[in-house]
């Protein structure tokens, strides 16, 4: 697996998943990405670990023996525990997603998923818990690229770059999550705000247009493609 260079944040993650293969696959991948992982294969043990230990993120399967995923999240939220939680589910309908998020989940991922997608989402959730510093900033930086949230101007190397509003939103979202892999689905959900499944890879076309404005004529590419996962913006 091609591992992009990431801003290194070591997280402690709890995986509650009853399918041993999926569980070991997630655990193995997370460990390779440098995170600490605990596992539980049923709802009861999972809830026990989640309430007694301190984690940076929870990965919870929706259908679990003994206690289902939504109940676990509801229970810990009821106890005032705000650890970011991502729900894994074979049920992909909007209804299910809404139910999942209402019960206190922070993100919802439908099985099957690419590991890169899960990793990208977990790292963004974990980071959100650690630093909310960016909230007050009105300017975002990546290398010599500067994005002004107030004047909505983008400047690279002293030159102003004209962007359409959607292109600006794309760049803004990726710069806000600088150093994190952003998947295509995440772009759809956050930049376009629709949960849907494009038949063709239109996102790639949008990115390539953005690239032609931001990176063309410069030595170093700001927006990089991460094979099999998505895109990343680095300094």
């Amino acid at each position: 697996m091609a591992k992009p260079k990431r801003k290194y944040v070591c997280m402690r993650i709890l995986v509650i998943e009853d399918d041993p293969e999926v569980q070991s696959y997630i655990a193995k991948g997370m460990k390779e990405a440098g995170h600490g992982v605990d596992t539980a294969d049923n709802g009861k043990d999972g809830l026990f670990l989640a309430t007694t230990e301190d984690y940076d993120a929870l990965i919870v399967d929706r259908m679990l023996p003994e206690l289902d995923g939504l109940t676990i999240i509801k229970t810990i939220r009821g106890a005032g525990n705000a650890t970011p939680a991502i729900i894994l589910s074979a049920l992909g309908e909007v209804d299910d997603r809404v139910k999942g998020l209402r019960s206190g989940g922070d993100d919802y991922l439908t099985k099957p998923f690419a590991f890169a997608e899960l990793l990208a989402r977990v790292e963004i959730l974990g980071r959100r818990k650690n630093d909310n510093l960016q909230n007050g900033d009105t300017k975002l930086y990546a290398g010599d690229l500067e994005l002004d949230l107030l004047s909505r101007k983008v400047i690279r190397d002293g030159k102003t770059i004209d962007l359409q509003s959607r292109e600006f939103q794309l760049l803004e979202y990726m710069m806000q999550n600088k150093g994190q892999v952003i998947t295509r689905t995440m772009l759809l959900e956050h930049v376009w705000d629709y949960h849907f499944d494009p038949q063709t890879n239109v996102i790639d076309v949008h990115i390539s247009r953005l690239r032609s404005k931001v990176d063309k004529g410069f030595d170093k590419a700001i927006i990089r493609t991460v094979r099999g996962a998505g895109y990343i913006i680095e300094d």
Partner: peptide
């Protein structure tokens, strides 16, 4: 969905 997609996920991740 649950019983077929889970093994498919597994297969996909094995390929990965």
């Amino acid at each position: 969905a649950h019983d077929l997609r889970t093994p498919l996920t597994r297969m996909r991740s094995n390929i990965e």
